[in-house]
């Protein structure tokens, strides 16, 4: 999977590395902003109210 991505990135390896890290950062950002809040709400793991 990662090797496949690496092979399909353009440019010499330093360029690939930068693109790869940017991709990774974008994915982590999306996880933190959208995915994890949704998971937290769905799993109901931080409820603090009664009733």
């Amino acid at each position: 999977m990662y090797a496949w991505v690496w092979r399909h990135l353009p440019g010499p390896w330093p360029v690939r590395l930068v693109i790869f890290l940017i991709l990774l950062a974008a994915i982590v950002y999306a996880l933190f902003i959208w995915v994890f809040p949704w998971v937290e709400e769905t799993l109901e793991i931080s409820e603090v109210t009664v009733g």
């Binding site: 999977m1 937290e40 793991i45």
Partner: peptide
């Protein structure tokens, strides 16, 4: 690779909960 990715995701989620 899937297992490693899943592990990293779980760790990231914990980082999100405790710090993010």
């Amino acid at each position: 690779e899937l297992l490693l990715t899943a592990g990293a995701l779980v760790l990231l989620f914990v980082v999100y909960l405790l710090w993010g």
